[in-house]
Structures are given as structure tokens and as C-alpha cells.
């Protein structure tokens, strides 16, 4: 299987504090990798770095056969190939669901209004949101908002999807509907990198789980191995606290 994303010794610090420390990881096309670790272990920062929202200090980020961390590159064409879904949804509150979803396809990909809307409607239908197309985000539940945010990202037809603790801001009873969307994406062989606190979910859907601590990749293994027989002391400590 080909490698979609390759991180080579990525490092990132904020004003002297190291947040990502010499991080290397390969993600194969169609693979789903879960990042677990305590708050502040660098999961979110790593995803933001891959999406080029944060410039990295050192290392390489290869998407297919391009080092996208090359500072002289224009980040916009690269970002449209990589979708990022945020913990706090970040829908545009002044736009309807439909306009949220069609804004980027129209302005970035140059699609016509009707074409973009038809494509958006297809996606909204697929995730049970077609009746919300004309609603504004603040009239939706948290779970619906997050599903719209995922649809908005999918409308750009990304090759790689980054999911940043997408259920952490949700009421417990709304988590399920969002995880169902991720299950459906996994079934369609979307390449995904997902930072999560939902250990049971990671165990269920991940092809591989990475444990991060203080910005370092401590251990990576298929979920069956990592959750039942962690090799590292720090992984064992973390798992004993959260499981």
C-alpha cells in the first residue's frame, strides 16, 4: 500500500516550549490512525502542523511525493487537499448550512453555484442533514453542527482527513451520531488521522493507534496490541488512568 502521509522528524515549539519533538510517522492510503495521549501531549498541534496552519521548526511532511513543509510553498493549494475538522466545529455562524458547505468549493475550486449545491446536498443527505440545509448553525445541536463541519470538509474532496478531538465538545448523548459518520468514512476507505479521547472508539475503528507524550511518539501498534499489551511504561500508566 502506498504511503499517503509521511512525517520525518517533525519538531515544533512555541516560544521555547517544545510541543512536537522529533516526530516520525507513516500513514498509508486508506489507513486510519488514532492519536491518543493526555491533554497537552501535542495531538492537536501535530494536526494543525500537517494542515500547515502552524509552521514547523524542523523536519519534513510528505504528502504523496511532495514535502509540503517546504517554507517557500504556497500553502493554499496544499490545504485544499487536506481536510481538518475542529473540536469546536468552527462553522461560519453568519452562513446557512448550505453556504457553509459550498463556500470553499465555489471560491477555491471555482465550482458553479448549482453544481456546488447539488454536490453539497448529496453529502448532507448521506449524513442525514438534508433538512438542515437552510438552517443557521446556532439552530443546530452540537452533534449536527459537527456533522455539518465534517460535510463542509468533505465537500473539498480531501485526500487526507484530520479529525481533532471532534467529540470532545459534545454532550455525551450526541457523541454517537458523530462517531457514526467517522465509521462511515472508514468504510469508504478515507485516509484519516484522528486525535481522540474516546479509547473505546479508537480500539474499535483504528487500524493503528499512536500514543503521544510530551510531543513524542512513545508507541505505535494496532489497537489490539496497544490496548492489551502496551510495551512502554508510560503507555501503561496512561492507559491505566483512562481505561
Amino acid at each position: 500500500m502506498s504511503v499517503k502521509l509521511k512525517l520525518k522528524s517533525v519538531s515544533k515549539s512555541f516560544s521555547g516550549t517544545t510541543v512536537i519533538d522529533n516526530f516520525s510517522l507513516d500513514v498509508a492510503t486508506g489507513e486510519m490512525v488514532c492519536l491518543i495521549g493526555a491533554s497537552g501531549s501535542g495531538k492537536s498541534t501535530l494536526l494543525r502542523c500537517i494542515n500547515l496552519l502552524e509552521p514547523i521548526d524542523n523536519g519534513e511532511i510528505w504528502l504523496d511525493d511532495f514535502d509540503i513543509a517546504e517554507p517557500s510553498l504556497d500553502p493554499d493549494p496544499i490545504r485544499r487537499r487536506i481536510g481538518l475538522v475542529f473540536q469546536s466545529f468552527n462553522l461560519f455562524p453568519h452562513l446557512t448550512v448550505m453556504d457553509n458547505v459550498t463556500l470553499a468549493p465555489r471560491k477555491v475550486l471555482g465550482k458553479g453555484k448549482l453544481q456546488a449545491q447539488a454536490q453539497a446536498m448529496e453529502l448532507l443527505e448521506r449524513f442525514g442533514l438534508s433538512d438542515k440545509a437552510r438552517a443557521y448553525p446556532d439552530h443546530l445541536s452540537g452533534g449536527q453542527q459537527q456533522r455539518v463541519a465534517i460535510v463542509r470538509t468533505l465537500a473539498m474532496q480531501p485526500e487526507l482527513l484530520l479529525l481533532d478531538e471532534i467529540t470532545s465538545a459534545l454532550d455525551p448523548e450526541l457523541v454517537g451520531e458523530v462517531l457514526d459518520v467517522v465509521r462511515a468514512l472508514k468504510a469508504s476507505r478515507m485516509t484519516m488521522l484522528l486525535a481522540t479521547h474516546e479509547m473505546a472508539f479508537a480500539r474499535e475503528v483504528a487500524d493503528r493507534v499512536c500514543f503521544l507524550d510530551e510531543g513524542r511518539l512513545i508507541e505505535t501498534a494496532p489497537p489490539s496490541a496497544l490496548f492489551t499489551a502496551p510495551q512502554e511504561q508510560r503507555t501503561r500508566e496512561f492507559l491505566s488512568r483512562v481505561l
Binding site: L53, P75, P77, R79, G83, F92, K107
Partner: peptide, 24 residues
């Protein structure tokens, strides 16, 4: 976070200002 969301979708700096930040 609003500009981050717009930029992550591939919108340029000026489109982000025009369609996302300024209206709000």
C-alpha cells in the same frame, strides 16, 4: 478559529477576510 477554519478549507487570506471575517 474562524480564519483557521476558512484557511484549512483552502480559502486564501483575502477570501477569508471577505467571506468569513468581515461579514461577522
Amino acid at each position: 478559529s474562524q480564519s483557521a477554519a476558512a484557511r484549512s478549507l483552502g480559502l486564501s487570506e483575502s477570501d477569508t477576510m471577505r467571506y468569513v471575517v468581515l461579514p461577522q
